[in-house]
Design a protein around this nucleic acid. Structure first.
Lengths: 222, 222
DNA sequence: ATAATAGTGTCTGTTAGACATTATGCA
DNA sequence: TGCATAATGTCTAACAGACACTATTAT
């Protein structure tokens, strides 16, 4: 029986220059050596307990990121997607604050606006588009976008993040009502005094939502 | 590098005795020979163009079903889930009308109420529960349950199907409004005269939704 | 006529979205 | 004091859910 190549790939998303962006890495081996692609690698049956662990390992090795929000996206497979042969890629997506990438970022890493991507090796463009679409639709009724922000943030910053991810403006009152329903935030007690106006309350994610989404039945918009 | 076992499994769902049910098949090989489990098999790199095709092949071989609603559920992986070694299973779920299974059903097939399952080989119980949960939540805002019905059906039968899948009653007026919004049905022109009362209009799925879901933003319930 | 279900009209409470108003800091 | 943004109050239109009523067949 012809062997099947088993890999994991990670769509690592963050906010950069006010846009939803993906981290790409220069490949040092064939195929597509020298080109930028999603971070990924073979599953190591000896080292990885599960594919999820393999994805964590890949992220750790390429970016130093250790505890991101990480979720399985889908599995891509087939004879034609990798020139080396019939392959399976279990794809995960991660959301991290930009600051985390700035600390660990290496010179072979590139952060690109997801809406400006034109081509990527393998079927990675398809994969990124699917991941973005998943994140956008899930943001409508969940806490997903908070994982793009640092530990503490104002409601204004959070709303801006939602608007960036979803690509459309959101009503302020509706937004705050929805955040109340999600019940995932707690005020830090501190105020953000970095602007020349009324300071905003700083919030953080409640502990129980650090790796688990909060969701509502009714979407953010109509 | 230790090789990884690559398989596909299918959660084949249908309505039986008024309950959401799953088709299980007697295993003729070890491990778990003689026990009933999800239909599945190794990916054949020579025969299958993609894992989706492998899932279709498995379904065809075990049940004769050729063109079901089929969607990828998730991929399960790890060292412990299969005694033969580190394995990856790309899992799909399918929805088919019971009548289709009655035609092709073999003696090693068993249809079981998903809420009555107590144990299954491998991690198949987890998998079925995840599939059921996915189907239930997706039914709230999509046309998914129609794939459990035969080609023609009344709105009453469709509502009953939704209620069975979601496990709770639905308001008739709300239900019909939602079906209007989904805009996926067309009247056949025929009436269902099988009952001793006012006959109901028969509907069928519009062609464009035979394998594609129709969805609404607002859920069926509040 | 009666039973039984199909199908529709209408009212009400809830909620999203729009708009307006008040609050609170800095320059 | 003026300006900018935070935070909240309030009105309205849309909609889900409940209920009632009408329609249409077989017996």
């Amino acid at each position: 029986m012809t062997p099947v190549i088993c890999t994991v790939d990670v769509v690592l998303l963050t906010l950069d220059k006010g846009a939803l962006s993906v981290a790409l890495f220069k490949r040092d081996k064939e195929p597509f050596a020298g080109r930028h692609a999603l971070p990924g690698g073979f599953i190591h049956a000896e080292a990885d307990k599960t594919a999820f662990d393999a994805a964590l390992r890949v992220l750790k090795d390429k970016t130093g990121v250790t505890s991101p929000y990480l979720e399985q996206l889908a599995t891509y497979s087939g004879a034609d997607r990798d020139p080396r042969g019939w392959s399976v890629s279990i794809v995960y997506f991660a959301l991290v604050p930009k600051a985390v990438l700035d600390i660990a970022g290496t010179s072979d890493m590139r952060i690109e606006n997801v809406d400006a991507l034109r081509s990527l090796p393998f079927d990675h463009l398809d994969i990124v588009r699917t991941a973005v679409s998943r994140v956008r639709s899930k943001s409508v009724y969940s806490s997903l976008p908070v994982y793009l922000l640092p530990k503490e943030f104002t409601l204004g910053e959070l709303q801006e993040t939602y608007e960036t991810v979803m690509g459309e403006p959101v009503d302020k009152v509706t937004f705050r009502r929805k955040m109340d329903q999600l019940a995932m935030l707690e005020p830090t007690g501190e105020l953000d005094r970095s602007r020349p106006n009324r300071p905003a309350q700083l919030f953080r994610l409640k502990k129980e939502f650090r790796h688990t989404l909060s969701t509502v039945v009714r979407p953010l918009n109509s």
